[in-house]
Each structure stands twice: as structure tokens, then as C-alpha cells.
């Protein structure tokens, strides 16, 4: 069943929740694909999440700085991409069909640091 949404209001900056109920970042940006025939409007094909996706939207010197610093820090190749097909439901938060771990949002380094401390619970529940 199709629904018309105002992408800016109802998609952008919404909380992403994975299939296990874990929080998986926010909708930092949207990927628009031009169907190419010049008649239709561009369609939203994926949700982008991650610091560099967000930085791209900030349109300020701070945003560009963030993008430069963050990319260097996390050494990744662009924002995590969630194709629209993996979206389960759109409500006050966006529910996904995948697990948060499948989204490469660059939290590996944080988990490695924190996981080293005693009592972090790293051994429990594969993530």
C-alpha cells in the first residue's frame, strides 16, 4: 500500500531502529536517484547514515571540517547505505529489516576500545 510522505519531515533525522530493537543511528541523508527519463522526479532509493552523510547536509564550514576530520579518523569510504527495500516500517522511527551490526557506521573502533575495559560485556550476545 503506497503512502505519500514528505521526505524531509518524515524521513530525515529520524531514528533508525534495527530488527532487534537496537538503535542504529539517524537518517542523516537520503539517496536520490534520477530515473533518467527527464519526466519523473528523482526517487528516494536509500537511506544514508553516518557522520559523513550528516556533514554533507550541514552546509557550513563546520560541516565540511567534520567531514574532513571524520573521514580521516574513520578511514571509510562513504556513508552507510540502507536501501529502501530494507525498511520495514516508517513511523515516528524508521524500523529496518537488518541488524545494526550489518550497517557499517564506523563504531567498530569505539567498540574495540570500550570492549577492552573489564565488565563491558563484550563476550555476551554476538553483535
Amino acid at each position: 500500500m503506497a503512502r505519500r510522505l514528505d521526505a524531509a519531515l518524515e524521513l530525515l533525522d529520524r531514528q533508525l531502529v534495527d530488527k532487534d530493537g537496537r538503535l542504529a543511528g539517524k537518517v542523516d541523508d537520503l539517496e536520490l536517484t534520477d530515473p533518467g527519463d527527464g519526466l519523473e522526479q528523482p526517487r528516494v532509493t536509500a537511506i544514508l547514515t553516518g557522520p559523513d552523510a550528516l556533514a554533507g547536509r550541514l552546509h557550513t564550514r563546520f560541516g565540511r571540517w567534520l567531514q574532513g576530520v571524520v573521514l580521516r579518523l574513520l578511514a571509510r569510504q562513504g556513508p552507510a547505505r540502507v536501501p529502501l527495500e530494507q525498511v520495514q516500517a516508517i513511523g515516528s522511527s524508521i524500523e529496518l529489516r537488518v541488524a545494526a551490526g550489518r550497517l557499517d557506521t564506523g563504531q567498530g573502533w569505539a567498540r574495540r576500545l570500550i570492549g577492552r575495559l573489564p565488565g563491558a560485556g563484550e563476550g555476551d550476545a554476538a553483535q
Binding site: A8, L30, E31, A53
Partner: peptide, 13 residues
Amino acid sequence: MSGTPPDRPAARL
């Protein structure tokens, strides 16, 4: 490629 959101009520300065 990112889509620019239309003007929102909480507009940028």
C-alpha cells in the same frame, strides 16, 4: 549524491 531537503520550518540562518 545527496538530496537537499526543502526549506524546513526551523530554517537555517
